[in-house]
Amino acid sequence: MDEVAGAIADPVRREILLLLRDQPLTAGQVAGRFPISRPAISRHLRVLRDAGLVRDTADGRRRVYTLVAGPLDELAGWIGRLTRPSGWQHRFDALETEVHRTRRERLTSPTTHSP
């Protein structure tokens, strides 16, 4: 997970992943979308490949890169644990629901009073 987090820490690498989300691209096609040098793009692609986020295949003399989203699952799960309510929050939500249900039942049920 640390390697994946480190790989996506760079905004250029995040943008590369977004480009590859739609379709596989050659290194040249990726480089053509950025105002930085081809060697710099190659280094970014290598970091993404080493983190398991992209796969490259040979197509003649070209390298074609494809997104591999699987390694993001562990990181997404960890982030999800940070953003979902804590155990106490779930209990408070359940209590609030029960209080509202009880109030509604009291208002809608006929009360019988004995003298």
Rank of each mutant, 00 (worst) to 15 (best):
M1A: 14
E3S: 11
E3W: 01
V4H: 04
G6W: 07
G6M: 10
A9V: 01
A9S: 14
D10A: 13
P11R: 13
P11S: 14
P11Y: 10
P11T: 14
R13Y: 03
R14T: 11
R14Y: 08
E15P: 00
I16M: 14
I16H: 07
L19F: 13
L19H: 10
L20K: 01
D22V: 08
Q23V: 07
P24S: 15
L25H: 02
L25T: 01
A27V: 09
G28Y: 03
A31Q: 04
G32I: 02
R33T: 12
S37L: 04
P39Q: 07
A40G: 02
I41T: 07
I41P: 06
S42F: 05
R43E: 12
L45V: 08
R46E: 12
L48I: 05
L48V: 03
D50H: 07
A51N: 07
A51K: 05
D56R: 06
T57G: 06
A58L: 03
R62H: 08
R63Y: 00
V64Y: 02
T66W: 01
T66I: 01
T66H: 01
L67C: 05
V68S: 09
V68C: 13
V68N: 13
A69R: 12
A69N: 00
L72G: 02
L72I: 04
E74A: 15
L75M: 15
W78F: 11
I79P: 00
I79L: 15
L82Y: 13
L82Q: 15
S86I: 04
G87I: 03
W88V: 07
R91V: 15
R91D: 09
F92V: 14
A94V: 12
L95G: 10
E96P: 00
E96N: 07
E98P: 01
V99H: 07
V99A: 10
H100P: 00
R101A: 15
R106W: 10
R106N: 06
L107I: 05
L107F: 08
T108K: 06
S109M: 04
P110R: 14
T112E: 09
S114K: 03
